[in-house]
Amino acid sequence: MGTVPHMRKYFAIARASFEVVFVYRAGFALNMFGTVLYVVAMFYLWQTIFLGKAGALGAFSWPQMKAYLLVAFLTNSLMTWFDEGDMGRDIRMGRIATDLTRPIDFQAKRFADAIGPLPVELSSALLVGAVVVFAFGGIAAPPDPVHAALFVVSTALATLLKFAIVYCVSMTAFWTTGMVGIRVGRTAIQNLLSGAMIPLAFFPDWLRSVAAVLPFQGLVSTPALTYLGQMDGPTTALMIGVQAVWAVALLFAGRALWRRAIKAVTIHGG
């Protein structure tokens, strides 16, 4: 992967994948629309809760909660183009055979595929987010530029981590054709344990301990709490470190799974 000519290959793949988004723009918009409706419903729900409370809920004020929901929306909107379905289709239709004959790293190719649409995802999420924020009267800003910068780092790591998780899960495609169910199940667990639906601080103790030992909290909770500056300096550094460790560990786990899976593969036609 290291040398520059190699990088160019993957860049070409990423660019092709970026262009594909424009071909399937209706599908992309629809995906986005689902997330938007969800976040709008959440804004109304939490608004009602906070206005009824007349004050803070735990460590959150209403402007902070709005910021939390928005960060959750942003991180959920990134890296959505690549999911378990792609791998399932490629294996079922025998397209995987072509990938095996190419002189490219399989995981790196998938990553290039997944990251191509990122500029579109990011800009549309920021645009939609700005509209929602405007409609609901503004959000809390990060406490200082350092936290803002760390938030960007944490969001980038969250995106890498999401790829690593989805890549690992998608390896099940070598053993089952039920990828829709796998994706829906993974999304459900991820939405709860990442803190996307509700901050982990609100969880009962036992569930919070479960979330703490799993990688999902790095997807939403860590970037959101970094943005808000709700963790002290050492904790912030630790949590971002945990994100990075999970991302790297799962990327390697994905490679190990792939090597095992490839021995089990039977190619139909193609």
Binding site: G178, V180, I182, V184, G185
Partner: peptide, 14 residues
């Protein structure tokens, strides 16, 4: 059958 069971479990999980 496996697909069907996975789908069922996923729906319950949601």
């Amino acid at each position: 059958r496996a697909d069907f069971i996975v789908l069922l479990i996923a729906a319950v999980l949601v």
